[in-house]
Design a protein around this nucleic acid. Structure first.
Lengths: 340, 340
DNA sequence: TTATAATATGCAATCGATTGCGCATAAAAT
DNA sequence: ATTTTATGCGCAATCGATTGCATATTATAA
């Protein structure tokens, strides 16, 4: 059953013409007669010809593949971004190659290398938590290969990036809590090193300030923002002389941890303590009460990065100036914060 | 900054040897002297040489890429399988190319075509819900390209597949409920056309039978198994003259819907009605009470498919007989079903 | 009718790495 | 000292598609 694959040479032979002509005919070159084109198409069909992308890639130096590097593919946010990228990329005949860094610097460096060797036409990445040195990404850029960062980016890299307005998201969340009548609003924050957490914190602070609420350092708890961290942070807050009446967590996981503790202690949500998370993870839908959160526009983020890639490829990479796209996050108000 | 990429010819020139020697030196060919090898390595380093996989792929007819087709990349189960595949594939220097069928037959056919053109060395797929004709997959197989199906497979295709033992999973779940003292166990089932739902149903029935509980048709409700379906099904069950004392849902989403309804009506879980889902979706961790469910071994499933691929590639595709791997699902007992 | 342009196709090199075959030179065996 | 064997490397073709530069033929213009 295993037929050899037909090449343009096979088609050429059948028609007593050369491969050049076949190649041009298939690409609808204007200097090839309609007759020949039709004949070529017909034979191609009959031989079940399928173009060899690899040969074309070698010749043109273009693989039509976009490399994607994500910390992990099995987190809702990232897989959703990937989907967004693929949607756009496919329309322009690009395929995507996905690699995971597992949030590990060494693996990330190796991955970049692998993608470069695979001669991808561009790389879209969100860097690993442990990454502090960006040499490997600079290398990509300096080779003239379009590089676009999303979610997590780095200014000094000077490449295009797509992020959400973390500041705005946080600001809106806190403003919403204030509107609900909350006065002592606590905040779960993450590693200071990562800009998204700094931004969320800034949004939190400024929202308070703009509404005449004094900033109280004891209400801010830093951690890794996982479920258990959320539990611990909540317990810590509950032991304060004066309890908070709301918690804005920089991650949904942290908020869920807090929710568990509150429920265990029969503290009512949102009446006693209102809760807002960040990320719009699928499980926020299923919690009881449903968690108010901030949507990160993951699919749009994917779409946007892919579009920038296409632009940059189109611009021939000469005149293209890196641009930073900032998506507006969406506050999704659910029961955990709705007092009215 | 944009340096031209060094090739083996550049290295050869520097050392006054030929590209053949360089190629062999880099691959540690025994007929090349240690001296030469060292020198080549040194120059390669200096020139920042990076092998061009595309050229190699063209020459060997091997791209070192595995194509993956999933209905959608942003569902926990599939992204987790992908992660599992990548883990193994990477250790053998393979990269993966991910495509989504969006559960649409036409897109799936096009995707298979695209992967074939990209000359992937193998395809790992879970077919779209709408797919009933398997010609496109047969084409892959007939071209001698390893094809491995996971989760959803089709017997007549006669290719290797990795699935979980849905029957066993369901059986264990129901047995567990019986052990907890449940006597009227209801079941949410899905589309009959899909074998996994038939199998789960079979497990349900046989577990009942083996434990001397009569099968009661009125306790089985069919639907799409989404959240809302679960709600409706639960409401329907509650209107029965005699209520069930447990529900085994063939999907976690369905179980969550049921849970919502029960909580709204102040029916205690698990004391009044125990609940078990299927799939171990992340949100089952966060529900209140946490949902007992069945883990589908997604990562292991990915690992297994990748391993079969490697075997098949290794076997040169001659002597290889397709094999079916059935993974044992794991019952994860949580609060929603624990009465004792 | 001859020069010029337009049309249709062929030639041959190229993209980089790989590999079978062959040819030296050196080392070992007879 | 001669024959074998081993060692180290080069030659040239190959993988399939692409493309700049001819070339041949036909159509149009002068």
């Amino acid at each position: 059953m295993r037929r050899e694959r037909a090449t343009i040479h096979d088609i050429a032979k059948k028609l007593n013409i050369t491969a050049s002509t076949v190649s041009r005919a298939l690409k609808n070159h204007p200097r090839i007669s309609e007759e020949t084109k039709k004949a070529v198409l017909k034979v191609a069909e009959k031989l079940n010809y399928q173009p060899n992308h690899i040969a074309a890639a070698l010749r043109n130096g273009k693989s039509k593949i976009i490399g994607i590097i994500v910390p992990t593919a099995d987190r809702s946010f990232f897989s959703s971004v990937v989907r967004g990228i693929e949607e756009i990329a496919n329309t322009a005949q690009y395929n995507v190659m996905i690699c995971q860094s597992y949030d590990n610097y060494e693996k990330e460096v190796a991955t970049v290398e692998a993608l470069l060797n695979a001669r991808v036409d561009g790389i879209i990445a969100s860097y690993a938590k442990g990454t502090e040195d960006f040499e490997h990404f600079l290398k990509v850029k300096n080779k003239g290969i379009p590089l676009i960062m999303f979610d997590r980016s780095n200014e000094e890299l000077e490449v295009s990036s797509v992020i959400i307005d973390d500041y705005q998201g946080a600001y809106n969340a806190v403003k919403h809590l204030i509107n609900q009548g909350c006065k002592r609003i606590a905040h779960f924050t993450g590693i200071k090193k990562i800009s998204i957490y700094r931004e969320r914190f800034r949004g939190y602070r400024e929202a308070l300030q703009d509404h005449g609420i004094a900033y109280d350092e004891s209400l801010v708890v830093g951690s890794n923002l996982q479920l258990d961290d959320g539990r611990e942070s909540m317990i810590k807050l509950l032991s304060l002389p004066e309890r908070p009446d709301a918690v804005f967590s920089a991650s949904d996981y942290g908020a869920m941890g807090a929710m568990q503790v509150l429920k265990e202690r029969n503290i009512r949500i949102p009446q006693d303590i209102a809760l807002v998370g960040f990320g719009n993870e699928p499980f926020t839908w299923f919690s009881e009460p449903q968690l108010t959160t901030i949507d990160q526009r993951s699919k749009q983020m994917g779409n946007a990065t892919a579009e920038i890639f296409l632009e940059q490829i189109g611009a021939g990479n000469k005149t293209f100036v890196p641009k930073k796209t900032v998506l507006k996050p969406e506050l999704i108000i659910r029961k955990s914060s709705q007092r009215k």
